[in-house]
């Protein structure tokens, strides 16, 4: 038999057997892992199960695998899998074990410490490397997050109106084009404020900005996250309502928006109430609009509403004919449910 002290030092996870395959000695780390379970004198094949290169039921078959890389599971260690190598010697045989790719799991599950490894074992360097790597990865993940954030901010800047936070004209155009490509019906609302110029001229820009933000808030509140509420410039707004089931539903929504916009509003104690005129168009997948024509049509409707008096809305006929249906502010109020 090989001097156990020598092998204990080089291979803390080894098993020595006699030529019949009965265990004569186990290394100190294995001993610690097995705890009270005594295996001395037992057949080695009751301690380890050879899974690869092929399963083995007789000790003679194990001897034939001298020097080969073995994949082993250990019934006494909750079927933990290990890598092993078996060597047949003159005075006895030795099976040496290592954790192989399961090293990290082994350290966790079997609570291994540095003493369980031979001084020359690279396992500790590997654990060190894994830990160093994860520290560096968390650094670069933080950096990636930062870059992502910066990109998002830049995108927002390019797409948002700085005063109101609504989409800007460029973003609106892109989304309208996308809505036209999509196979669903949507409503396009175009709004121009009434009395805004008076507020701006008499109470100043700050009051004007306050009013614009109030309108933007209202539009946002009455739209879903997928919808696109935009400030096209000055006191001109537009909203794309996706998947709108019917023109009546769009009218109902606008009636509620208008009620909010017309509600009395004060800025620093001064009245800055306003109203709005609107053009509305309902677009179904069957109609074949070009974005320019659509905008021109809803623009025409808006001006028809303006001509009709304050607080009115003009709805283009479905299908894009020139027909326009006008609703006064009073008529619109009836749509509120």
């Amino acid at each position: 038999m090989i001097d156990p002290k020598v092998l204990d030092c080089f291979a803390p996870l080894h098993v020595q057997t006699d030529h019949q395959g009965l265990i004569t000695h186990i290394g100190p780390a294995l001993k610690r892992l097995l705890g009270d379970q005594t295996v001395l004198g037992q057949p080695i094949l009751s301690l380890v199960k050879i899974d690869r290169p092929h399963q083995i039921s007789h000790y003679l078959d194990l001897e034939a695998l001298h020097g080969a890389r073995l994949h082993i599971s250990m019934p006494l260690l909750a079927d933990f899998t290990l890598t092993g190598v078996f060597a047949k010697g003159q005075s006895g045989d030795v099976l040496n074990l290592s954790f192989g790719p399961e090293l990290v799991q082994a350290v966790d599950q079997l609570s291994l410490s540095a003493q369980d490894f031979a001084a020359t074992d690279l396992a500790l360097e590997l654990l060190y490397l894994i830990e160093a790597n994860s520290a560096i990865t968390s650094f670069s993940n933080a950096l990636m997050g930062r870059i992502q954030e910066a990109r998002k901010k830049a995108e927002d800047l390019a797409q948002k109106d700085p005063l109101t936070g609504l989409h800007n004209r460029r973003s609106f155009d892109a989304r309208l084009a996308r809505a036209l490509d999509n196979d669903h019906s949507f409503a396009l609302l175009h709004i121009d404020l009434d009395y805004f110029k008076q507020v701006n001229d008499t109470l100043g820009h700050q009051a004007g900005d306050y009013v614009l933000c109030h309108v933007a808030d209202t539009l946002t509140r009455f739209s879903r996250t997928d919808d696109c509420a935009a400030r096209l410039g000055g006191d001109e707004f537009a909203v794309i309502y996706h998947n709108m089931p019917s023109p009546e539903q769009a009218l109902q929504i606008y009636a509620r928006i208008l009620a909010k916009i017309r509600a009395p509003l004060k800025f620093e104690g001064q009245d800055c109430s306003i109203s709005a005129s609107a053009g509305l168009i309902f677009v179904t997948p069957q109609t074949d609009w070009r974005a320019d024509d659509l905008i021109a049509a809803v623009d025409r409707a808006l001006y028809a509403a303006k001509d009709h008096g304050r607080s009115a809305l003009a709805m283009c006929d479905q299908g894009g004919a020139n027909g326009i249906r006008l609703y006064s502010g009073q008529e619109l109020a009836e749509f509120q449910t």
Binding site: V104, D108, L112, S113, L124, L127, E131
Partner: peptide
């Protein structure tokens, strides 16, 4: 000092 970080078990 343990070979594995105390909180790394969950991640593993």
């Amino acid at each position: 000092f343990h070979l594995r970080k105390p909180n790394s078990t969950a991640q593993a």
